[in-house]
Each structure stands twice: as structure tokens, then as C-alpha cells.
Design a protein around this nucleic acid. Sequence first.
RNA 1: GGGCCGUUAGCUCAGCGGUAGAGCAGCGGACUUUUAAUCCGUUGGCCGCGGGUUCAAUCCCCGCACGGCCCA
Length: 493
Amino acid sequence: MEDNDLLKVRLEKIAALKAAGVDLYPNDVKPQNTTAQIMAQFGDTDSETLAQLTQKFSIAGRLMAVRSFGKAAFVKIQDRKGQMQCYIAKNILSEQDFFIFKKLDIGDIIYISGKLFRTKTNELTVEVESLRLMAKSIHPLPEKWHGLTDIETRYRQRHLDLISSPAVKEIFYRRSLIIKLMRQFMDTHDFLEVETPMMQPRAGGAVARPFKTHHNALDQELYLRIAPELYLKRLVTGGLERVYEINRNFRNEGISTFHNPEFTMMEFYWSYATYEDLMSFTEELFGFIAKNIFEGLKFTYQGTEIDMTPPWRRLTVKDALLQIAGMDPADLTDSTKAIAFARKAGCDAKETDPLGKILMAIFDEVVEKKLVQPTFVTQYPVAVSPLSRRSNTDPEFVDRFELYISGREIANAFSELNDPADQRDRFVQQLKEREAGDDEAHEMDEDYIRALEYGMPPTAGEGIGIDRLIMLFTDSASIRDVILFPLLRTKQE
RNA sequence: GGGCCGUUAGCUCAGCGGUAGAGCAGCGGACUUUUAAUCCGUUGGCCGCGGGUUCAAUCCCCGCACGGCCCA
């Protein structure tokens, strides 16, 4: 299924260019300027001053528009930072260069050089003195005005999306900036950036289904990691004390506007800190990013103003269930009552489930979407937190929080469980749930317990979903809009 | 996994039981200061795929594929 006629025309042009001795894919010219740099430097310079300039400028990029008058033309060249208008005139170019210009198509990569001037309408423009074809394009680009709107094509052929939509390009520039800012913030606070295994013999550190793979030489099953947690805490035990990792996690679960099977997470561990320290730290980190991007702590996400001014709301899971879900205090301690409430709220709950799990199912169904402004939900049931430290005030709950913004979980953090005996008990409990049919329950990890037995300092750790954070800071409705190549089903012909 | 929606020219979209339309892009022509340039002319379609209903299907029905949104 090829665009036959359009392709044929371009192939004829290629033949004509070749016959005239034109190299279609040279690599011997380097542009000395970018469109953005010229604009920044001469955007305010008047015509008279420009006319005095003897300096030549050269830019390269994709030909995006041609307005031709026969013997002259205005064209737009787009490079990584923007677009610039250029003026082509037959009496300025060499005969060969003008011949090449006439054979160009929108979408070709070209190089031009010349002097700057202002047009009648005062637009800063390069008067082209010489021109090179740098790479021939044989497929037509999306329409110039509407651009590319077909969502499937946008994700499958992201190059077309990036070429035709400056707003998309802007999102990925901002994504890079946000991650840079996070690194800067962590480095400033004396955290060490590390990399831990993506392929693990046991997929631990979170509650999720893993992807499975196989190493041939070792003849061993391996899992793509669902979290780096257990490795990062080994490093804390090893004395690194403050570590962070920004990298991909893989979870073999459904795809939605908030879930991609591979997603980016920043996880960090901070010795001698508690989950309460992490709340303040998170407020500072998010504030640091927001101030750099928005020059303030308030911004709009999908039509709703989000205010990141600290301190953020803090409430316990229990209080959230009482105040927001409208549960009765008796429902929180009685499994039968909790199950009845859960069923009424429309979530499944099995009689065999521990109470804590049932409560969290109600939380996810009823409370989550109502937490629009930044909110730390604290004190999770121990049953759903196999790696968190028990609370000193109530051992059935743990010193943990999840951060919700715009009704979505953005971060998960807790004071780490560093008592190896308790950790073993938790793993044993998880094994029981696995045997009861919960294939997401955590596996036993003897190596990890052994590491804890050497003594891990009291530590707090946090994971922040980078893609979701970037959605928030780019006002994106879908996680696919902040991931360059989101997973799609392979198309079969 | 379920529900709803979409798939028509390279792109953006109309059409809707009687055999395919527009704009942009392309091609030919005019034009040396345009800004989605303009003006004249013009090429281009397995109407996602497979069945069915019908004298006749892009249109109605069923299935499939891919995508979107919502739900689990």
C-alpha cells in the first residue's frame, strides 16, 4: 500500500538530480548556526543594521514550506529548535543551486547559507546565497495546517509527529528538563546515582506481575524488574546511605492512559530519615521543579488548578476511609462489615482477603479519584506493605505514604523495614497469599534477608512515577503523550 | 476481559442504499517580498479486512484486525 504516484514523482526528481551530479546524501557540510540562535541574536536588529552586517549564516534542517513565485521563493527551514524563513532568488543563486531548489520537496533536509535581512513585513530572513540538499525525502509529510492528528500514526511513527508538531517536541524537551532538575536536586542533597539490575532472578520490591525471560548461557529464568527496591537497599546496607536510581520498571499488566508496561521511576533511599522527612523532601523536590518550569507553585492540569504550595494535606488511610468514603469506624476493624461495604461500593472482596487488603480496595475505588490537590495518604495496613516498617503506635499499620495528585498515585514511600526477623515473617505471610491464589504477592528473598541481617541503618525510601509526574507538568491526558514510543500491539500485514 | 466510538486520496475531513467528494500536499501553467501566498488547470481511491442481506453496500447486519475513551 504505497503512495504510488507521489512516490513516482519523487523518484523522477531523484533521477534528474543524480543526472546533474547531485549527491542525495552528502555529509560534508556542517551548519554554523541554529534558527533559535539567529532569532535570539538578531530578533530585534533593524534592517539598516542588518544591511551593514557582512557575516554569513548557515543553517540546516527540514524544508517545511515553500511559497514560490517562479523566479523567487520564500521557504521555511525547521531545525531542532525552531523555524526560520529563507529567501530564494534566481539571480542570487548559482544556476546549479537554483536547479536543485526546483527539484526540492517539502520534507527534504537542506543546508543554506547567506546574509540576514528583513522583508517588507519585517520578518528576519536569510537571503540564500548557496544551497545544498543534505538528505532527500521520498514520502510526503502530513498536512501543513492540521498536522498529524491520527493518534495511532502519531505513536507508531513518532518521527512524523515530532516533525509536524512543535508542541509534541516541546513535551519531550520538558521531560528531559524535569529529569535533569530531579538529578540536580538529588545531587545537591548528596545522593549518589546508581544503576541496579533490570534482569532479576526474582521480581521483588513491588506488588505486580513481571515479564519473564531466559538467559541461555546460564540456562536460567530471569524477570524484568518490577522495582529496583531490594537492590537499592542492599546498597544502603553496603554503606552508600543515600542512593537514587532513575530507570525503567516493567510490569506485565494492562495498558491505559495511566499505565505503560515499561515506565520510568525514580527510586531513592535516605538513611537516618523517616517517611515524615520524605514528605517534606517531596514537597521541596516538586516545588523545585514547578518553580523552574512555571515560575510558581500553581499550574493547570486538564482544566483544574493544582496548587503545590506546602505543606500538602496529610491524612491517614483510616481518616480517608471515614471522611471521604463515609465508612463507619466499626467497618475498619471488622472484615465482614468491611466486605459488605466494599461490595456496596462496587469492588470485589474475597472472604479470604486480609482486612487491610479489603480496606485498600475500597480506598482505590472510592477515595483515590477525589484526591485532586497534592495529598499524602499515610499509615497503610501492614498486609499491603510487606517491605515497610511497622508504626510505633499501631503495629497493624506501617509508616508509609502515597502521594496523590489529580486523583492519581504519583509516589509511594515508607520508612524501610530493617528488622530481618519481621521481614522474614512478612515474606512468609506473602507466600501464604501466593498459595491462596494471589500471583502478585511478594516472593521469599533469602539473599535480601541475609543482607538485612548484616544491619541496614534506619532508612526511608520513595519511588516517584516519572511519567505521571511529567503528565502533570506538561498537562498531558495520556501517559502515551509523554513516552516517545508507547507500547502498541504489533500490526500484522 | 466488557461496553461505546472510530478506520473513506499522502495528510485533514465530508458523504451515506443507486456505484466517490472538498481542502492541503502533488503535477502543469502565471507570478522576484510571501506568511495556511494568490490565480488558472489537473492527477490521485480494494471507502481497514472477511462474510451476509439486497436488483444494487463506502453506507444496513455479523465476524475479525488495529486504534481511542470508559469500566474491570
